[in-house]
Amino acid sequence: MLDMKQDFFELFGLEPRFAVDLDRLEQAYLEMQGRVHPDRFAHLSDAEKRLSMQWATRANEAFRTLKSPLARGQYLLELKGVDPAFETNTAMSAEFLMEQMEWREALEEAREAADEDVLDDLARRIRRDTKGLVEQLQAAFDTAGDLEAAADTVRRLKFLEKLQHEINDALTALES
């Protein structure tokens, strides 16, 4: 019996590893939604409508998780029983923490000065660093099998994602 306990990789017929063929993922997702989406069941019984909503919800959740490197990394850790402990773990390198502080200061200054160029520049730097970390994460999961290193990289990525959001919010605020 199929059930909702299948993990997201199984759901889309993918191997549970960090490197994911995004085209194949998307194809599997669209194929799945094509079959379970509520629009396919709008004229059918309530039981079928309810099941369809549950499955379509699950497919969306799975796709969202596997598509993003950070969410995928977090999910893989969860599957392997490792808690990335965002709130409590402070075992990040001093160097990384220092860089974070510098970035936060730069963000604050740019926000106060309403300097769009500096904000754009920060966003670019974060994108570049994110890319590097994603490569590290893939190596940690798929090559080295080092879950500790993976958890550390996931924590760093989380930090960068938050910063990216704040920069976007600051840019949006500048426009209004």
Binding site: L14, R35, E48, W55
Partner: peptide, 20 residues
């Protein structure tokens, strides 16, 4: 029926990888 349909969605992929 929903199960059958979802199996259909997976049939085009590597069904042998999937534990059902």
């Amino acid at each position: 029926r929903m199960d059958k349909s979802i199996r259909g969605a997976l049939a085009g992929h590597k069904i042998d990888e999937i534990r059902i």
